[in-house]
Amino acid sequence: KNAAQIVDEALNQGITLFVADNRLQYETSRDNIPEELLNEWKYYRQDLIDFLQQLD
């Protein structure tokens, strides 16, 4: 998997990933985040941060 796929997957589930103060953050109206997504975000944290910062 790559960062773009993970960001896309999150968006499809109503979750927006973004970077604030060099930390990976998310916004969602969901009550909870599936644990497998959280684990994936932790595992790919630096890739996601790098990818999202390139988009800014």
Rank of each mutant, 00 (worst) to 15 (best):
K1T: 04
K1R: 07
K1P: 04
N2F: 09
N2S: 15
A3G: 04
A3L: 07
A4T: 05
A4H: 10
A4R: 13
Q5Y: 05
Q5W: 06
Q5D: 08
Q5H: 05
Q5E: 07
Q5N: 05
I6G: 01
V7E: 00
V7P: 00
V7I: 12
V7Y: 14
V7K: 02
D8S: 14
D8I: 15
E9N: 06
E9P: 00
E9R: 08
E9G: 03
E9A: 06
A10Y: 03
L11Y: 11
N12E: 14
N12K: 15
N12T: 12
Q13P: 00
I15R: 00
I15G: 00
I15Q: 01
T16R: 15
T16S: 07
T16F: 15
L17K: 00
L17I: 05
F18T: 08
A20K: 15
A20P: 02
D21V: 05
D21A: 06
D21H: 08
D21C: 13
D21F: 07
R23A: 13
L24D: 01
L24M: 03
L24P: 01
Q25D: 05
Y26D: 00
E27I: 15
E27W: 15
E27A: 15
T28E: 03
S29W: 10
R30L: 12
D31Y: 08
N32P: 13
I33T: 03
I33D: 01
P34E: 05
P34A: 06
P34R: 05
P34K: 04
E35K: 09
E36K: 08
E36M: 08
E36W: 09
L37M: 12
L38C: 09
L38Q: 06
L38Y: 07
N39W: 12
E40M: 09
E40R: 06
E40H: 05
E40N: 05
W41T: 02
W41L: 07
W41K: 00
K42R: 14
Y43N: 10
Y43I: 13
Y43W: 11
Y44S: 04
Y44A: 05
Y44K: 04
Y44H: 08
Y44E: 00
Y44I: 03
R45C: 14
R45Q: 14
R45T: 11
R45S: 12
R45G: 07
Q46M: 08
D47Q: 14
D47K: 11
D47N: 10
D47M: 14
L48A: 01
L48D: 00
L48Y: 01
L48W: 01
I49L: 08
I49S: 02
I49R: 03
D50P: 04
F51N: 01
F51I: 03
F51Y: 15
L52V: 03
L52M: 04
L52C: 01
Q53C: 11
Q53E: 10
Q53Y: 09
Q53F: 08
Q54I: 09
Q54L: 11
L55D: 09
L55M: 12
L55N: 12
L55A: 12
D56W: 07
D56H: 13
